[in-house]
C-alpha cells in the first residue's frame, strides 16, 4: 500500500527516545516510491486533461496518486525534522561531546548540521559570555561533590587542573562538571 514504508520509518523513530541509526535505505525507498507514483499521475494528467474536471473516474485516480506522493513527502520530511530536533536536544544535553557520541548514528548531512549548529551555539555563547547549556535547572549550590565512574582524564578548572581518576571523589564547581555528570562519567553525590 502507498506510503507504508514512510509510516514504518516513523514508527521506528517513535519507539525510542534515543537517536536510532539513520535509515539511508528507508529514505531511498520513499524517494523511489514517489518517483513510481508520479509516473501514472503525470500520464493521467497529460492524457485526459480535458475530461479531468468533470469525469470522477479520472479524479479518483489523480487524487490517489497525488495524495500518496504528498503523504510520502510528509513522512520523509517528518522523519528528517524529528531527527534534527533530537540532535539539537542532545547537543544541549551532552555539550561539546555530542558529535562524538552521536556520530555512528548520523548521516553525512546531519553530521554537517551538528557541526554548524555546534559552531553557531559556541559563537553565540562566546558573544554573550555565558554557557547557555549549563545550569538548565536553577542550582542550589555553586559546588557539587562528585564520584568518578569513568576515567575523564584531566579537566581544567579555575583552581587548576584536576585529574579525574575512577573511584575518586571531588568537590568541584558545578559548571565545570555538569556535562560530565549528564554524560554518565561522573556521579553526583549528595
Amino acid at each position: 500500500m502507498h506510503g507504508r514504508r514512510g509510516a514504518e520509518l516513523l514508527e521506528e523513530l517513535r519507539k525510542t527516545k534515543w537517536l536510532p541509526p539513520y535509515s539511508e535505505s528507508g529514505i531511498r525507498q520513499i524517494a523511489a516510491e514517489i518517483k513510481e507514483l508520479l509516473e501514472p499521475f503525470l500520464e493521467i494528467i497529460t492524457a485526459h486533461r480535458a475530461s479531468l474536471q468533470n469525469d470522477p473516474r479520472y479524479i479518483s485516480g489523480v487524487v490517489v496518486f497525488y495524495r500518496s506522493v504528498q503523504r510520502n513527502k510528509r513522512c520523509a520530511l517528518a522523519y528528517l525534522m524529528n531527527r534534527l530536533r533530537r540532535i539539537v536536544a542532545f547537543r544541549w544535553l551532552f555539550g561539546q561531546a555530542a558529535p562524538a557520541r552521536l556520530d555512528q548514528n548520523l548521516s553525512g548531512a546531519e553530521r554537517q548540521f551538528l557541526l554548524k549548529y555546534n559552531a553557531l551555539l559556541g559563537e553565540y555563547c562566546d558573544a554573550v559570555g555565558l554557557d547557555l547549556t549549563a545550569d538548565q535547572s536553577p542550582p542550589r549550590d555553586l559546588y557539587v561533590e562528585v564520584r568518578v565512574i569513568a576515567d575523564c582524564g584531566d579537566i581544567l578548572t579555575e583552581a587548576g587542573p584536576v585529574a579525574l581518576k575512577p573511584g575518586t571523589a571531588h568537590f568541584l564547581k558545578r559548571t565545570d562538571v555538569e556535562h560530565l555528570i549528564r554524560q554518565g562519567s561522573l556521579q553526583h553525590i549528595l
Partner: peptide, 16 residues
Amino acid sequence: ERRIDRIGMAHGVLGK
C-alpha cells in the same frame, strides 16, 4: 526527599 537538584545522568545515554 530533597533530591531534586541532583544532576541526573541524561536519559538514554547509549542504552544505559
